[in-house]
């Protein structure tokens, strides 16, 4: 679906934002592109959506070199930017209708899209009266209007409350089930962990690691279990013990704690994506 080989991009001022990165995305995959601000993830996305020209390297999208695509590229590709960009004097429905009319192919009804993100009741409200969260939802759903094969989404859940954030994640999973490929740029590791099939970490314009969140957790997490308990079932302060995950069932001490104490929590020591990011790159995401 998308392959990038040795991609580099240098801005006119001389700043080298992306330095020889390689990755490939399969059809129907949700690919998370993770990194702190200034790491090169937005630059990469801008190159991939043809906003930035003059890159070095080879990019193939939908079976064709990127620099051979013309504006018909956007019939196959949907883009949602990090910041909302709508006509503030038009209503939500009018905004979607306008953008819908710019495509030649099959498109979705604005009402259907608004329903997907819970904006049906605000269909006839001018965008100037929308909150940022509402504008973000409209931003996201606008990228789906022409049923694109490939979606480029930049921080699609930013500014959303947990309920609406979950709604967007559910829609993304649904899109994946329908065979769409999603390139997700984010610094929200939780979102990436929940919905991405694979993630790439980018720092200082270079990809340091690519794998599935599960594999990363397994590879970089500690294979240990932590138990929090109250001694002898009393109300004494909580105590904590840690055991190796391997051979846990044969650990007499672990079994004794389970039998004789009131257990508060038992957790495996899996690393979060954020922990792994910090561990592998030596950088934080902020």
């Amino acid at each position: 679906m998308l392959s990038v080989e040795n991609l580099s991009y240098t801005y006119p001022g001389g700043t080298e934002a992306v330095r020889g990165i390689d990755f490939a995305i399969e059809k129907g995959e949700i690919f998370g592109f993770l990194g702190p601000s200034g790491a090169g993830k937005s630059t990469t996305q801008k190159v991939l959506i043809r906003l930035l020209r003059g890159f070095q390297g080879n990019i193939t999208v939908l079976g064709k070199p990127l620099n051979q695509w013309d504006d018909s590229y956007y019939e196959q590709v949907g883009v949602a930017f990090e910041l909302p960009n709508h006509y503030q004097k038009l209503t939500a429905s009018e905004n979607l209708s306008l953008f819908r009319s710019l495509y030649n192919g099959d498109t979705l009804e604005p009402a259907q899209l608004l329903e997907m993100v819970g904006l049906s009741e605000d269909a006839d409200t001018r965008l100037s009266q929308f909150s940022k969260g509402m504008q973000m939802r409209l931003n996201f759903v606008r990228s789906l209007i022409h049923k694109p094969e490939l979606l480029f989404l930049d921080e699609p859940t930013t500014g959303l409350d947990p309920v609406n954030g979950q709604k967007i994640k559910d829609i993304l999973r649904q899109q994946k089930q329908e065979g769409r490929t999603i390139f997700l740029t984010t610094h929200d590791m939780t979102v990436a962990d929940q919905i991405c099939d694979r993630v790439a970490f980018i720092v200082d314009g270079q990809i340091t690691l690519i794998d599935s969140p599960r594999n990363l957790r397994l590879q970089h997490g500690r294979r240990r279990v932590t138990v929090e308990y109250h001694h002898d079932g009393t109300s004494a302060p909580t105590q904590q013990a840690e055991f190796p995950l391997d051979g846990l069932g044969d650990s007499d001490e672990f079994l004794k704690i389970l039998r004789t104490n009131r257990i508060e929590t038992i957790h495996t020591q899996e690393a979060t994506l954020e922990d792994i990011f910090i561990q592998t790159t030596g950088r934080s995401l902020t």
Partner: peptide
């Protein structure tokens, strides 16, 4: 909106 328009055909 200029960039939104140019992200369509």
């Amino acid at each position: 909106t200029l960039v939104a328009l140019t992200s369509t055909p």
